[in-house]
Design a protein around this nucleic acid. Structure first.
Length: 415
DNA sequence: TCTGGGGTCCTAGGACCC
DNA sequence: TCTGGGGTCCTAGGACCC
């Protein structure tokens, strides 16, 4: 018996000693709350932020609006039906962004290990910050109150030992929630929840899991433990991640490095569905300029241009082209977008068009990769001319008029 | 007036090289 | 003329999240 007791104490101390304190903080109804801070008369009134025109949806709404059944991603007209006195406000994203920075800087006063996860949430490692704290609950309640006093923002806090558990914990109680999930509490707290409330299980996967009898996170855990074939087929490689998450073995690493974009894109729903090429290309031009501007600002060049279109039935299609010489010039992006459009969608009636620059590299990186000769040549030649070269190689036959001027060379591929 | 726009990551098939 | 297998890259589509 004493041996057992020693083992228990050892296991406890060992675990506590090894575990980090990982926190997820989520701002409650962030955009709506920002508007309330700007104009306190909005408080306790149903407020929705979002575009009110064609295709407009609710981006965020206040808790007062949620009482009417309004929720985010809901079409605005439907929100108005549910709540006729809904106050609709178009987003002021510069303002939200400044409030977001205040929030992150507030958290950084407790720990430098802060990882923004989106405009209104972050992960943070509070292991050192809570060391010596006798009452962790009061500690985080105080943090919550201080944030409110200083900025007016409300937040929910999740405290645990891994990112996944912290995220689930912050989701557990809103608004102004504080939930601590110890590893031993996973069964009590998470298992009774519906399977669709599990992070990573979305509206496609949840029905498939339900079709094999999985209703709750607990049901899912049992199937994961028994290596269930159905669940393996449904979740693929994600199976093992889900298992680790629910065993409390998920990642506890906080990445503080600056966010490094892997793609830069812009898309827009057209004012009305159309198959008019001239109009559609005007939108491609605007999108190409926007994408180019942002790529230049981020000091990025892309090897791939992808266009996306959506037809009247909301079905979307991608087409992309990868080329040797990375670019961020709007002319090139526009040319490729138009080529891809001409080749694939010119007759189609479209609802939405978009352009994404992918396969990004830093401008510096490119300069290093290219020899001095290639680099200067690249600078001299227009990106469009180089592009035609790439297009011809990729498509194996001339695409643009000027193609005849360009010497054909085999099927060489990038890298 | 039915259903945004910004992303990330994964999968599966085909081309191509060795 | 008929044949393999490993590895990388490109492409298109899909799921998910905020």
């Amino acid at each position: 018996m004493p041996t057992l007791l020693v083992n228990i104490i050892y296991v406890y101390v060992y675990n506590v000693g090894m575990s980090k304190v990982i926190v997820h903080i989520d701002l409650n109804a962030f955009f709506a709350r920002c508007e309330e801070i700007k104009d306190p008369s909005l408080e306790n009134k149903p407020v929705a932020i979002g575009h009110d025109g064609r295709g407009g949806i609710v981006s965020t709404c206040s808790y007062a609006a949620r009482k009417y059944g309004v929720s985010s991603a809901m079409p605005m007209f439907k929100a108005r039906q549910l709540c006729p006195n809904l106050i609709v406000i178009p987003g002021d994203y510069h303002y939200y962004s400044s409030m977001s920075k205040k929030f992150f800087n507030f958290v950084r006063r407790y720990t430098k290990l802060v990882e923004p996860a989106s405009v209104d949430e972050c992960f943070a490692d509070f292991t050192d910050a809570v060391k010596g704290q006798k009452d962790v609950v009061s500690f985080f309640r105080k943090l919550q109150e201080d944030l409110f006093k200083e900025t007016g923002l409300k937040c929910s806090i999740g405290v645990s030992t891994t990112r996944f558990l912290a995220k689930m914990a912050s989701d557990y109680q809103k608004p102004m929630g504080l939930t601590i999930i110890h590893k031993r509490d996973i069964k009590n707290i998470l298992f009774p929840l519906k399977v669709e409330s599990m992070f990573g299980v979305g509206k496609r996967t949840a029905p498939r899991l339900k079709s094999v009898g999985i209703k709750t996170i607990g049901d899912l855990y049992n199937k994961l433990e028994s290596d269930d074939e159905d669940v393996k087929n449904i979740t693929g490689k994600f199976f093992y991640t889900l298992k680790e998450w629910l065993e409390g073995k998920g990642s506890d690493e906080i990445e503080i490095e600056k966010w490094d974009p892997k793609s830069i894109g812009n898309s827009t729903t057209l004012p009305y569905d159309t198959d008019n090429e001239v109009e559609i290309k005007k939108y491609f031009l605007e999108l190409a300029k926007e994408v180019s501007d942002r790529a230049v600002k981020e000091d990025k060049l892309g090897h791939t241009v992808q266009i996306v279109v959506k037809d009247q039935t909301f079905k979307s299609f991608n087409k992309s082209l990868t080329f040797d010489n990375p670019t961020n010039k709007w002319q090139t992006i526009y040319d490729v977008a138009c080529s891809l459009y001409d080749k694939n969608f010119s007759r189609m009636t479209l609802r939405l068009v978009g352009i994404t620059l992918q396969n990004l590299i830093d401008y510096q990186e490119m300069a290093v990769q290219m020899s001095l000769f290639d680099y200067s040549r690249h600078e001299e030649e227009s990106a469009t001319k180089l592009l035609i070269n790439d297009l011809n190689r990729s498509l194996k036959k001339p695409l643009l008029k000027r193609a005849s001027e360009v010497k054909k060379d085999g099927n060489s591929r990038r890298r």
